[in-house]
């Protein structure tokens, strides 16, 4: 606590070398909505805070050939206000919109949500379902990784020392495809997911599901990409039977704990319910698209 330094580098390289140098004592600081709480609760005690928000492009959204790229530190409110992005990836917006309050979203970023590595993070399952790719920079240059490869456990990521996420790239949206994220919380807002589910699916002209990705949050140490759940939808008209089967696959994939936010049994039971409801919303969106 004695030598805490605040740095706000203006290039990715400067940031990654500062982080590499600081090692375990370094902390990326984007919106700070997790970091500030953790400092206050004395859960972390960093030596260096590396505020990445001055890095060019890390707070902005761009599009090329239907594929969106957005900076990892882009605030939730900025993403939500971007009409093109929001209408293309409504499921990600569902997830982002659920993060904290308007005030929290005035700062909170998807990069922070993913890298804070909470099993219950709301945008992460939506990003995984969407098939988002992370553009990572580090001391040894840059690399890409799908979002599902980032979180390795509660508070733990696969990012190496000095690495951080610069931006996310979304695949171009296929026709007749749609995504949705839904969570279960006791309150309507300002709550942490007891269960979260992100679904992204694509239909053919006849309305048969040709591709799907289903991701669950808060039911295991990391957000899950549940292939069996997606398989239950692919090749079907996403009818009741297919949804029920997908729900079962979701419940089967759960490996939750009982804690202050919900019991194990409750999570397993409701994972199926929430995933089915999310899939229904995704289906409607896909049909409209």
């Amino acid at each position: 606590m004695d030598d805490l330094r605040y740095e706000a580098p203006d290039s990715p390289d400067a940031a990654s070398s500062m982080l590499a140098e600081a090692g375990a004592g370094g902390r990326v600081f984007a919106g700070g909505t997790d970091v500030m709480v953790q400092i206050h609760a004395e859960l972390i005690d960093p030596d260096v805070i590396v505020d990445i928000k001055k890095i060019p492009g890390i707070m902005s959204i761009s599009e090329s050939g239907g594929a969106y790229t957005f900076g990892a530190a882009t605030a939730g409110m900025v993403l939500m206000a971007h009409e093109g992005f929001a209408s293309t990836w409504p499921g990600i917006i569902d997830g982002v919109a659920l993060i904290g309050s308007i005030q929290v979203k005035g700062r909170a970023s998807v990069g922070g949500n993913v890298c804070n590595a909470s099993p219950a993070a709301d945008s992460t399952p939506a990003m995984i379902a969407a098939g988002a790719i992370c553009n990572i920079v580090g001391p040894n240059g840059s690399r890409e990784a799908p979002v599902e490869d980032i979180v390795t456990g509660p508070g733990k990521t696969s990012l190496a020392a000095g690495e951080f996420i610069l931006s996310f790239t979304m695949p171009a949206r296929a026709p007749h495809s749609g995504d949705a994220y839904l969570r279960l919380t006791p309150r309507t807002e300002m709550d942490i997911a007891v269960v979260g589910a992100g679904v992204n699916l694509t239909l053919d002209d006849a309305g048969t599901c040709t591709a799907a990705r289903v991701s669950l949050g808060a039911v295991a140490p990391t957000p899950l990409l549940v292939a069996e759940a997606a398989d239950a939808l692919i090749g079907t008209k996403v009818d009741e039977a297919a949804l029920a089967k997908m729900g079962e696959a979701c419940s089967a994939a759960c490996n939750p704990i009982s804690d202050k936010r919900g019991t194990k049994e409750y999570r397993i039971k409701t994972a199926s319910v929430i995933a089915q409801r999310a899939a229904q919303i995704a289906l409607e969106r896909a049909r409209e698209n």
Binding site: G32, M36, H40, D51, A75, G106, R107
Partner: peptide
């Protein structure tokens, strides 16, 4: 931007 000032570092 509407924010919580408890979640902002003064140095920022």
């Amino acid at each position: 931007d509407l924010v919580c000032s408890c979640l902002v570092l003064a140095v920022e």
